[in-house]
């Protein structure tokens, strides 16, 4: 390590001698000072004019555009958010109203249906009663008719039987009277 350091120092010495041989600082040689000043002023002026007139306004425009766009987008987002909230409220309201209406319609239809059923039932019952009355009348009429026809039939049967058994013809009116008598006695048992 020590030998390396001494080597380094030796080379530093050699190098500094080399630099010394190159003579002074070129910066302090005034030959091209005027030229450097002239070109510096020229180049910098052109650079300054092009930057201030052309590039900076463009970059500023870009930045402003972006800022405006972001602001606009945020505003829009807020607006849409508010709108959607209002719409949601509206939707909820509509839904609630619809629910109420459904209940109302349900109730109304139920009541009308009940009424309808009731009235139909009543009219049906009336009709049924009418029919029953009519049927009863018919039955009673049939009863009456059937008695007289039964009497006639039984009268003729009786006269036929007697004729066949005795060979005599009996008085029809007396047979009739007997049949009527019997039937009057027994009729109530069957009818």
């Amino acid at each position: 390590m020590k030998s390396f350091l001494s080597l380094l120092i030796a080379f530093v010495a050699i190098n500094t001698e080399l630099f010394a041989a190159e003579a002074g600082m070129p910066q302090l040689d005034p030959t091209y000072w005027a030229s450097q000043a002239f070109w510096l002023i020229l180049v910098f002026t052109i650079l300054y004019i092009s930057i201030s007139k052309f590039y900076l306004p463009k970059i500023k425009d870009n930045l402003d555009n972006r800022e405006n766009k972001i602001k606009e987008d945020l505003e829009n987002a807020n607006k849409f958010k508010e709108e959607s909230e209002a719409k949601l409220k509206e939707y909820d309201l509509i839904l609630e109203n619809a629910k109420k209406e459904v209940l109302k319609i349900h109730f109304e239809s139920k009541s009308t249906l009940d009424k309808d059923i009731q009235s139909k039932k009543e009219s049906m019952e009336k009709e049924i009663e009418k029919e029953i009355l009519k049927a009863q009348k018919e039955i009673s009429e049939l009863k009456k008719n059937s008695i007289s026809s039964i009497q006639i039939i039984s009268g003729s049967i009786v006269s036929n039987i007697i004729e066949n058994i005795s060979g005599d013809k009996l008085n029809e009116s007396s047979i009739k009277a007997t049949v009527e008598d019997v039937s009057k006695k027994n009729m109530n048992k069957f009818l």
Binding site: T31, Y32, A34, S35, Q36, F38, W39, L40, V43, F44, I46, L47, S50, I51, Y55
Partner: peptide, 19 residues
């Protein structure tokens, strides 16, 4: 003496790179 030098050249290069 306003000659174009290597210093001027690199000024121009720097300005051109900026632009």
């Amino acid at each position: 003496d306003l000659s174009f030098t290597n210093a001027s050249l690199f000024m121009v290069i720097s300005a051109a790179v900026i632009m």
